[in-house]
Nucleic acid binder design. Sequence first.
RNA 1: GUGGAUGUAGCUCAGUAGGUUAGAGCGCUAGAUUGUGGUUCUAGAGGUCGCCGGUUCAAAUCCGGUCUUCCACCCCA
Length: 454
Amino acid sequence: MAAQKPSIPKGTRDFSPIEMVRRNYIFDTIKGVFCNYGYQPIETPAMENLSTLIGKYGDEGDRLLFKILNSGSYLEKVDDATLENKDQAGLTRQISEKGLRYDLTVPFARYVVQHRNDISFPFKRYQIQPVWRADRPQKGRYREFFQCDVDVIGSDSLLNEVELIQIIDDVFTKLGIKAIVKLNNRKILAGIAEVIGESNNFGHITVAMDKLDKIGIDKVNEEMLAKGISKKAIDKLQPILSMEGKLKEKFPLLMDILKDSPTGLKGCEETKAVMCHLKDLGINTKFELDLTLARGLDYYTGAIIEVKAVDVAMGSICGGGRYDDLTGVFGLEGVSGVGISFGADRIYDVLMELNGFPEAYQASSKVMFVNFGDEEVKYCLPVIDKLRKAGINAELYPDAARMKKQLGWANNKGIPFIVMAGTEEIKNKKFMLKNMNKGEQEQLTEHELIKKLK
RNA sequence: GUGGAUGUAGCUCAGUAGGUUAGAGCGCUAGAUUGUGGUUCUAGAGGUCGCCGGUUCAAAUCCGGUCUUCCACCCCA
């Protein structure tokens, strides 16, 4: 039988030791900040019932859901008409009732509703788990990737938005990534659509506006025209698209434009309040009002937050917003939540480009004992045990291989210290400690060895 | 889902008027060094040329399909 070539599915990755050390550095940093603000961890299953997921992310999102084939003789239960008509959607419904989670927010909403009696609101939770999207992979885009979510649910207070941005500030400051936080508000966008008389085309307008940075104002206008938005409305939109300047100037201008839309004005007030708080706090990270920021999923209703790295061309590395009624579809009305999600994989890519991982983070132990044979092993094992109990990562090479092999192995693993104890050392009750970086070595007693390595 | 590029040794890549045993660097293994790695020198191992099919006396090379990775669009962390 021919050996099959090993491979993994498109858009997925293995993580080797060095990568895991670096990833854990990211996760540990993020987790530390989350805990620092009083958020509690939860986890939810990799798969959810498809009914939980479908319809929460828009049509595009539904297309990107990974669906899991039912077990058993699923095909027998499919009615003939579905097969004959090649009714794909109908067939999917009949043969698949589970799917891999697409993000952590919807499963969280499901969790909150299901456990509502055990939760005391407002509930502050964090969740770090992989999610899956059947997207076509490219740079910074994977089919399996990790999200680090923090959400507060059951509180309308804008202080939550402020706190989340403080968290963003803390995380990226700790990771040494220069970031910029872009803020917007769904209510402002709704207000804009309203005052230009195109509320029905809200989606088309925001998607087009979102591309302003990338394709320029003319193309944006072109796209909106193509989507059936009236020339008159587009004309009315121009002052907003070309709005520049400082926040102080932007807000009055915006409020004037939105003066006939109570929703729009509310969004303005909310955003202004958040920004005032941030200004008072004096955070490290720059933040700005970006009216073209429309990203975020269908369920966002208030603040929209997006973070980009300043020094690296990469999609957003963190994003989120407020959702007023995500739990509503699961039968719990009137519970508002706000949250953000850090994209660990993209943060990894950014840190790689910046060469921003700390050197000290090491995958290996601090000291390796060379294995010279049974007698010597017997002499070393108790000391290795003592080192470990003293909190020093220590190991013994498992085979009595050639010295060259053992030292080469330690070298490749980046182990900084080697202990050699052969007949000579055993006789003198000593241990030869070798510094692999400097090449120096010295004979030490057991006590001195432990002290030295500590 | 749409369009474009890519695939040769473990890794990075050479290799077309189709023509004997497909190359380099790095890495790996062994020796120089019977208790000393990371430097040096010498030797060696390692390839279904992504996969399937077609054209041809002959295909890594030309053609078709398929998969992979990457880029743009769509959308997103």
